[in-house]
């Protein structure tokens, strides 16, 4: 592996790890606040899937970095400006409809991204994708189900779900952006060219929203910046909570 490819793969694995850990943490904020016990357990399981996925990406990133850092350093010792996650993942949990709409957007995204990543020439990334594909199949089943129930539910649930769709739509464009780093890796057969996936994502999401009697928003405003470290105000607060125990007791073992 050339130095340039190695450095880019490290950056790529970190980005994908950041997406997973941030979304996983946001979902975990529902634990003990779920609408009822069964859903609480089920959604908590999804959070665990994402945190497990983050660990795999970070472990690989640490291996590539080879500078003594571990997966924990990637998760707990970087500030918000060093995080490279997509903005969609860091948005606060909001109400239940908001979380499920975000989940649907993410699940459809991974439904398209992971089979591509499975084809990666990088064996580690491909292996992580293989595990993620199975998880995502189940995640999408759940979030699709919820968006249908809530969108085509009561007047109140419909209103809240539509509001969430409209509020989050502008954060979805960034998911399909490519930059130099990812383009170089895509050309080398390592990274996924996400710019080719927007049409399929739009079609899948639109079909589900329409079935849920919801309106698919027009593409208008778009917010970007996650991949370059320019985040919304939400990430700093989230990381403070996520990192405080690790940072308060450096090197603590139990």
């Amino acid at each position: 592996m050339s130095d340039a490819i190695k450095a880019a793969t490290l950056e790529y694995a970190t980005r994908l790890g950041d997406d997973s850990v941030v979304l996983g943490h946001r979902i975990s904020e529902w634990v003990s606040y779920g609408p009822f016990l069964e859903e609480d357990i089920a959604y908590g399981n999804v959070a665990l899937d994402y945190i497990g996925r983050a660990r795999m990406f970070y472990t690989y990133a640490a291996e590539l970095a080879n500078d003594g850092r571990t997966e924990d350093d990637f998760a707990y010792m970087r500030s918000d400006r060093e995080y490279r996650n997509l903005l969609l993942m860091e948005m606060p949990k909001g109400d239940f409809a908001y979380s499920q709409v975000r989940q649907l957007f993410a699940d459809v995204y991974y439904t398209l991204v992971l089979p591509e990543l499975l084809q990666s020439k990088d064996e580690t990334l491909s292996a992580i994708a293989a595990k993620g594909i199975k998880e995502t199949k189940y995640h999408l089943r759940r979030s699709r189900d919820w968006v249908l129930r809530l969108g085509d539910g009561t007047e109140e649930s419909h209103k809240r779900t539509q509001k969430a769709v409209d509020a989050l739509w502008g954060y979805t464009h960034e998911m399909f952006d490519m930059d130099e780093t990812e383009q170089m890796l895509a050309d080398a057969g390592i990274a996924v060219d996400v710019s080719k996936l927007r049409t399929a994502w739009h079609k899948m999401v639109s079909d589900i929203l329409t079935e849920a009697t919801l309106t698919v928003p027009e593409d208008g405003w778009a917010v970007r910046g996650g991949r370059t470290g320019y985040h919304t105000e939400n990430l700093g607060h989230m990381l403070t909570e996520m990192q405080i125990v690790h940072r308060s007791h450096p090197g603590c073992q139990w």
């Binding site: 357990i41 089920a42 759940r142 189900d145």
Partner: peptide, 20 residues
Amino acid sequence: SLHAEDHEQALEYARDCYTR
């Protein structure tokens, strides 16, 4: 046993509550 809206959802929760 568990609570759910319908059979479909019950099956999903059964997976999460009893087979993880």
